[in-house]
């Protein structure tokens, strides 16, 4: 599932460089990236996105789940990546693993290959 990497809604242009690495449509694709990320990768994402999170959430609040423009969908996918990656910076010391836990790749998400903006997840 490719992602159009060069567009974000107006006002979020500073986050465009993060799209190519992080923004993916599904949980499985994002997990593949997160499991390989370094502490530096998490830190860079975190420090770039956290200050913009109120604006990002404000913009996404105006977006229906389905029918987003490509730029809006990129913003959603980046926000989803941040939503899942933030604990690794805030809680896990930059580790790609959850410390002292089961191997994450052995968990199988039933929704893992669905676009995360699918209206129905069940």
């Amino acid at each position: 599932m490719s992602v159009q990497t060069d567009t974000l809604p107006a006002g979020f242009e500073d986050l465009v460089p993060l799209l190519a690495h992080w923004a993916r449509q599904t949980e499985n694709l994002r997990s593949d990236i997160r499991w390989k990320a370094s502490a530096e990768d998490f830190k860079a994402l975190y420090e770039a996105v956290l200050p913009r999170l109120p604006d990002i959430l404000g913009a996404l609040e105006a977006c229906p789940l389905e029918g987003m423009s490509a730029a809006e969908e990129n913003l959603f996918n980046l926000a989803a990546a941040f939503a899942e990656a933030a604990p690794h910076h805030e809680l896990y010391g930059g580790s790609a693993d959850v410390p002292f836990s089961f191997a994450a790749h052995r968990f199988r998400p039933g929704h893992g290959d669905l676009p995360s903006n699918a209206r129905i997840l069940r």
Binding site: E27, L57, G58, A59, L60, E61, A62, C63, P64, L65, M68, E72, F76, A79, A80, A83, E84, A86, P87, V98, F100, S101, F102, A104, F107, S116, N117, R119, I120
Partner: peptide, 28 residues
């Protein structure tokens, strides 16, 4: 409950990730 916009879904994705990670700790 179903998200009505993309911000609510992203917030659910975060909460879900926190809880999934706690389950990883449990199953460990």
């Amino acid at each position: 409950r179903p998200a009505r916009n993309a911000a609510e879904r992203v917030a659910q994705i975060h909460v879900n990730a926190l809880h999934r990670n706690a389950w990883l700790e449990d199953t460990g």
